[in-house]
Design a protein around this nucleic acid. Structure first.
Lengths: 356, 356
DNA sequence: CGATTTTTGGCAAACGTTTGCTATAAATCG
DNA sequence: CGATTTATAGCAAACGTTTGCCAAAAATCG
């Protein structure tokens, strides 16, 4: 059975189910059942088989099984092609959390990057249609689609995470951005702030729309005018968080009536903005309160420690995996197409009441 | 052929090679050859086959192929189980770079986390021995090994990255840490610094040993005593970079003769250390020069901008993949078991000549 | 133009599992 | 104790490719 007929001391790998069966003195099918479906075989035979398997260091061949049962145990995560490297640890956290949950469910995690080019789209579609993967978690706003084949039409269970793609009919796990921003803005108002500076992400981006809406809602609720908030950023993508902050600091310097509170849509923006502002002599939070988005760990150790809205990434990852596995197992207990996880505001020294 | 005999409007997926063959009016084997080995089949038949394949949206089944040829096209990356979340973007950068290179070579990337528990070890070994993966890139210092099976003995090509595991016989892609630290220390000495504060990573850790050795080499070269350098940290793992920095700031406060230059072994340490130090009234770089390790993007935007030693992660990823694919294809052109990539010192405002 | 080589395409046997069906042995029942 | 059910194990056919081998057709040669 074992094809180690060439060199004597060949690789110790490669024991087959047939080898186990022979050693245990049973049929192949019995081995298969003993391993996968223990109730179906007598205890005595089973222990004999298990012993034989262990002795040979037998590991079932995943591809053979996959081919036979017509399913793979691999989940693919689709990441936006050009990740940006700031201070946020969201991507590694997501990966870690998802992978952990998947492994508990008996699945493996494969990475796919979705760039703007056709190559990467085709690659992902090959994975989907080639039976390599069993489901997908997508962190990108675009669904791959090229010459006839589309990810949506692959029949593959898909869950979107971070981005709300429920419009496209995808189960989505997102945070309550709007509400979170509304609350933090309300808190700033309560502290006495009346002039705001909003550092926007990419114009029209889902997150940005939601977050800005939160600001406006809080103003409206307090009976304040929308004119009290100035926007900066928006021309650059999230790609350039630090740059947005730097440019925002320049914008800020131009303003005649200085805002007293800054709401930034990423920690990156906040960090570079604060750095520039401090260099120009202003102090945080005495002259300016700052709050931002992402919950990056470093915020705790900035000067001053930055208030930030943390997205509970671990929890989101777990939720996404749960939804995906439900869909795979047809449990379809998920009634809601959108799963909203609450963000957590971490208030630190960067927020205070405005001077005088 | 196609088993869509249940519902009319079933999933459009699932065209088989047999379907393509029938539509093109040729045998299955001809289709296979036309797709994989175009030279072997007449151009006219081939275009006919390609047309049929496209029309049906045919995608070859990866598991069937894998089973038949006895190889998978998946590479596994083994990450240390508990990633720490600081400011470093090394892990996502590594993933991105490796994945990109792999895809160009026709491979896919699977993630595996190696914790200290037996479960995760067994999981990785199952992947290795179950034929799921074709090779591994490992970023962890420990090779999984449990009841008889060991990753080293799997016959799988393995390349270590970041950590030097050439002792264990593994191809390793590392940076020239010692040299880099030696150079930066020499530069500090040249600027006039004579008392140093060294923020250590985990005691005995490969990186730490190398880096500290670099400091000592520079001192020796300048004819200075080793007594000029104070160590802090070392008790905590890399896990806690920020905490090490905080504690180091406390240690620093105790010192009667203050060092004028700090060498930190991670940006995390440097950032929290600097934050604490500044709060205590000292100024960087006037009172204290700081240089650290990792090349985290945020260092450029800290106050003051931090000098840091950048590991060229992209290049390392490419190198690791090249080595791995060489090993897989038996090209074994790699004579050296250790591939050293040069780090890059990024000098910023956090380093200056000492006062007076 | 027959003989030989080259090109092209088809048949069928793998690859290592799982699983429906069947056959035997053991257990239960009337 | 014979008849019926239930537990257990084996046979063999899948799963969707690739590929060694062979046959027919086409091309080349003497």
């Amino acid at each position: 059975m074992n094809k180690n007929n060439d060199v004597i001391g060949e690789e110790p790998s490669g024991a087959l189910m047939a080898d186990v069966a022979k050693l245990a003195g049973v049929a192949i099918s019995t081995v298969s059942r003993a391993l996968a479906n223990p109730g179906r075989v007598n205890e005595k035979t089973r222990t004999k088989i298990n012993a034989a398997a262990r002795q040979l260091g037998y590991t079932p061949n995943a591809m053979a099984r996959g081919l036979r049962v017509g399913k793979s145990n691999i989940i693919m995560i689709i990441l936006p092609g050009s990740l940006y490297y700031g201070v946020s640890q969201i991507i590694p956290q997501v990966l870690q959390s998802i992978n952990k949950s998947l492994i508990q469910g008996g699945y493996n995690l494969m990475i796919a990057n979705l760039d703007r080019d056709e190559i990467s789209e085709r690659h992902i579609l090959d994975l989907a249609f080639g039976g390599s993967v069993r489901g997908a978690i997508i962190l990108s706003s675009k669904l791959p689609e090229v010459d006839g084949r589309s990810l949506a039409g692959s029949g593959l269970p898909i869950v979107s995470m971070l981005l709300d793609m429920s419009d496209a009919g995808l189960q989505s796990v997102v945070t309550n951005d709007r509400e979170a921003v509304r609350d933090v803005t309300a808190e700033l108002i309560r502290l006495g702030h009346r002039r705001f500076f909003y550092l926007a992400g990419p114009e029209g981006n889902y997150h940005d729309v939601e977050r800005y809406a939160g600001v406006l809602e809080a103003l409206a609720a307090a009976g304040l005018s929308e004119a009290l908030v100035r926007r900066s950023g928006g021309e650059l993508g999230y790609q350039r968080g630090f740059d947005i902050g730097v440019r925002a600091a320049e914008d800020f310097a131009q303003l005649t009536e200085k805002p007293t509170a800054v709401i930034a849509t990423s920690d990156d923006m906040a960090i570079s903005f604060v750095s520039c502002i401090q260099r120009s002599g202003l102090r945080i939070p005495e002259d300016l309160s700052v709050v931002s988005f992402d919950g990056s760990p470093v915020c705790e150790f900035s000067s001053p420690p930055l208030s930030t809205i943390e997205q509970p990434v671990e929890e989101m990852g777990r939720a996404a995996v749960d939804l995906l596995l439900d869909a795979i197992d047809q449990r379809q207990k998920a009634a809601e197409i959108r799963t909203v996880i609450r963000s957590r505001l971490i208030l630190r020294e960067s927020v205070a009441a405005p001077k005088r």
